[in-house]
Amino acid sequence: MAATIHVRLSRGERNIPLVVSSTESHVIATWSTASAVDVSQRMVEFLNKHLRQ
């Protein structure tokens, strides 16, 4: 389902990142600290890039 949403959002000239982990579940509370930090940093970078324009 994530891949389908990603394809639809990426139509046109948008660059929408999709990160899929084969080792983590959908529930962030169960993730390793390293994965949670990585995703959190990616989200902050994405929001800073797109909301500070």
Rank of each mutant, 00 (worst) to 15 (best):
S40Q: 10
L18R: 09
H26Q: 01
H6P: 03
Q41S: 06
V27F: 08
T23Q: 14
W31M: 09
L51V: 14
M1Y: 00
S10D: 10
P17V: 09
T4L: 07
S21A: 05
E13R: 11
T30F: 09
I16H: 03
N48D: 10
I5Q: 13
M43T: 09
T4F: 01
R14A: 14
E13H: 02
P17A: 11
M43C: 05
F46M: 09
T33M: 07
E13K: 08
R52K: 12
N48G: 15
S25G: 09
R11T: 00
L47H: 04
N48P: 03
T33N: 11
L18G: 04
G12W: 08
R52H: 04
T4Q: 07
V20P: 02
Q53C: 02
S35L: 02
R42H: 08
Q41M: 02
N48C: 13
S25Q: 10
R11N: 04
R52F: 02
W31E: 11
A3V: 06
A29S: 12
A2Y: 00
S10W: 08
A29D: 08
M43A: 02
I5F: 09
R8W: 08
V37G: 01
A29T: 14
V20S: 11
S25N: 11
E24L: 12
S35K: 14
R52W: 00
E24Q: 15
H26L: 03
E24N: 13
H6N: 08
R8K: 14
A3H: 04
V27P: 01
T30E: 15
M1R: 07
S40N: 10
V37A: 04
E45R: 09
V27S: 03
Q53K: 09
V44L: 07
V20K: 07
R11I: 02
H26C: 02
A2K: 05
R42N: 09
N48S: 15
T30G: 05
A36G: 10
Q53N: 05
W31L: 10
A2S: 01
V44A: 10
V44N: 02
A34R: 15
V7G: 00
G12V: 00
A36F: 06
W31D: 08
E24I: 13
H50Q: 15
T30K: 15
T33F: 05
V39T: 12
E24C: 10
E13Q: 03
T4M: 05
S22H: 14
H6F: 05
A29Q: 15
S10I: 00
S32L: 11
A34Y: 06
N48R: 14
T33L: 08
T30I: 06
K49L: 14
H6C: 06
T33S: 11
E24A: 13
W31S: 03
G12R: 10
S21E: 08
K49V: 07
S22Y: 13
Q41F: 02
N15R: 10
A2W: 01
V37F: 01
S21N: 11
E45P: 01
V20N: 06
K49E: 13
T4A: 08
A3G: 02
V19A: 07
S40F: 06
N48W: 02
T33Y: 10
V20M: 13
A2T: 00
V7K: 13
G12E: 06
